[in-house]
Design a protein around this nucleic acid. Structure first.
Length: 602
DNA sequence: GCCGTTTTCGGCCCGACTGTTTTCAGTCG
């Protein structure tokens, strides 16, 4: 049966290769492209001064489409209906069809006749919103940041109604630092700045407690800024001044009684909000977000005749909840929703129905199935890695070196791998309480074959397959490559499935749902690689694996004995993907794990 | 432009800070 399947995949794959070679190339339209059209429409409508709710509808659609896990164009091309998506009505659905079909949108073209596309770029400049951009364009014909710089330098901006000298110089300053302003920091990097700053804030006299809220608390893979929330005694004095005097502060953007924003020398923006203890829970909820989640919860409050803001939950003037987050949720009839779930991706409905998952925690992990040693591109020996893993509370690990194709990493050939198998057998006899499994991170070649022969792979406990080359292949080609890899006889886990590197490399293009379903069929697993610049699977794909019943392995991909700390970031991402401990492969005991890895079962 | 625990029309989340203003608009989160 396996052979027949492989042949099918093989045939399909070759057809795909031929069609690629014969040059029938059409510009692919991805969900991101459709979302980008709607985002530009929203920007231009806003500059035009259109109905704010119409604009919001486009912005909501951007989010919905970006997070929709299936490729819309592929879906529509296959003849399937566009499923009913929240916030997408008849009109927007029509435009989605239009964009998927033609790559363009009449409304956008029409807007371009009123405003050049470039003006939307001006909205990214801090201090410039739609009204000012419109004024700049209509009064001074400012279209680009270059036009803007010139107008500011010439002193023409200060003359405009509603503008002034300060606004003009602020624009000039913003233009100088613009390259940094939209930068998002990987969570692990932000963590380094956050922890020492938080300790500093906690030590300011008058501060009774301080926490980090925002996307940091929701464990997003990157954060745009840090939101620190500090409860202060009612007579506290000088807290803001102390905060702004922090050693690493480069620039103070705003500073009032309740709120201050600063830029650190690293470029990271930090907002501090002060709150009184009775409002701490309300403020934590409010500033943890996400925005979409907050709006949804506020709507529920409204439906109960209540008003929710960062100070509490109110019935008319009376505060009825707010000291803890739990009190807020309870008062609107919901159980506490974990921060990682607060994205308005169904968590409120699940909470209502009592279907919230009990999310996996770091303590649940019993093993780590992906790491390297100094034999290839790691820094420590097998024994050192095993000891560090044991110290981190793990019961088993798998050593998974690169394969020969990855020469830069000194990947193993069959002979080297066989020698390591012997080494591990020897070391295993000396390590009570820790088991080392024998594995490999074998390259998935461009044709979907693996970089080492079955005869060698058969000797291992697990085979992790990974893409390290040919990132550019077409969606169809890439999908078939991965399908073929998963169907290899000894394949166990698909490592860092999308290959993305946060901030530097886009994910490869493939049909994730097809791969997830194939993994299910073949009793394979998907990895959530916990390296801070990977965090791959992404959250929504964890959710997809969960929905399809495929277990996810949360692995450190450690290249050093100090890298087991990565696992906390993997856990954060897994929690964002709704995963419970039972849905994570390496929460299993070794005895439970082994049968799952045994390929003879397939 | 979407949507319905009161609704197919009339709503649509809420407040702080700044600068340019003399009471508020614009921006931001």
């Amino acid at each position: 049966m396996q052979t027949a399947q492989c042949q099918n995949v093989n045939r399909f794959y070759k057809q795909e290769l031929q069609s690629t070679v014969s040059g029938t190339i059409t510009v692919p339209i991805h969900n991101a492209d459709i979302a980008a059209v709607f985002a530009e429409i929203a920007d231009l409508l806003e500059i035009r001064g259109d109905n704010p709710f119409r604009i919001r509808a486009y912005r909501n659609a951007v989010r919905t489409i970006t997070e929709f896990s299936r490729d819309i164009k592929t879906l529509l091309d296959s003849g399937a209906e566009l499923p009913k998506l929240p916030g997408i009505g008849a009109d927007l659905a029509g435009k989605i069809h239009e964009i998927a079909k033609t790559g363009d949108c009449k409304l956008l073209k029409q807007l371009h006749r009123e405003f050049p596309s470039a003006v939307t770029g001006l909205l990214r400049i801090p201090g410039l919103g739609p009204k000012r951009v419109r004024t700049l364009y209509s009064e001074l014909e400012v279209r680009t940041t270059e036009d803007l710089r010139k107008a500011a330098r010439d002193g023409r901006i200060r003359e405009l109604p509603g503008f002034g000298e300060k606004t003009e110089s602020r624009i000039l300053r913003a233009l100088q630092t613009q390259s940094n302003s939209n930068r998002r920091f990987p969570l692990a990097i932000a963590t380094q700045y956050a922890e020492s700053l938080l300790a500093y804030v906690r030590a300011i006299p008058g501060v009774t407690q301080a926490e980090i809220a925002g996307s940091y608390r929701r464990r997003r893979d990157t954060v745009g800024d840090l939101d620190i929330l500090a409860s202060v005694e009612s007579d506290a004095f000088g807290v803001m001044e102390k905060f702004c005097a922090y050693d690493e502060v480069k620039d103070v953007l705003v500073s009032g009684d309740a709120r201050a924003s600063v830029i650190l020398k690293s470029g990271l923006q930090v907002d501090l909000r002060l709150t009184l203890p009775e409002s701490h829970g309300a403020a934590m909820h409010y500033f943890t977000g996400s925005k979409a989640h907050n709006i949804a919860v506020r709507r529920i409050a409204q439906a109960h005749g209540l008003k929710l803001n960062e100070y509490g939950l109110f019935r008319r003037r009376e505060r009825i909840a707010g000291d803890t987050e739990e009190s807020i949720f309870k008062a609107v009839g919901l159980p506490l929703i974990e921060p990682e779930l607060r994205e308005d991706r169904g968590e409120i409905e699940a909470a209502r129905a009592g279907r919230l998952p009990k999310l996996v925690t770091l303590d649940n992990l019993r093993g780590d199935l992906h790491m390297h040693t100094k034999a290839t591109d790691g820094r420590h020996t097998i024994l050192e890695m095993a000891q560090a893993a044991a110290a981190a509370g793990l019961k088993y690990i798998a050593i998974t070196e690169h394969s020969r194709r990855l020469t830069v990493a000194h990947g193993f050939d069959p002979r080297q791998l066989l020698k390591q198998i012997d080494d591990i057998d020897r070391i295993n006899t000396k390590l009570p309480g820790m088991t080392i499994l024998k594995g490999i991170e074998v390259d998935i070649l461009e044709d979907g074959n693996l970089d080492l022969p079955d005869s060698v792979l058969a000797r291992l406990d697990l085979v992790i397959g990974a893409v390290h080359s040919a990132f550019h292949l077409s969606r169809r080609h890439q999908t078939e490559r991965l399908m073929r890899a998963i169907n290899q006889r000894h394949f166990t886990i698909l490592a860092h499935p999308s290959g993305r590197l946060i901030g530097s490399r886009k994910p490869i293009d493939f049909d994730m749902l097809r791969i997830v379903r194939e993994a299910k069929k073949r009793s394979c697993f998907l990895e959530l690689n916990a390296q801070p610049d990977r965090l791959d699977l992404q959250d929504i794909h964890c959710q997809m694996a969960r929905d399809e019943g495929v277990l996810v392995a949360i692995n450190s991909d450690a290249h050093s004995k100090f890298d087991f700390g990565h696992l906390q970031f993997g856990i954060g991402q897994a929690r964002r993907g709704w995963l419970a401990a039972s849905e994570v492969l390496n929460t299993r005991s070794l005895a439970q794990l082994k049968p799952l890895l045994r390929r003879t079962m397939r």
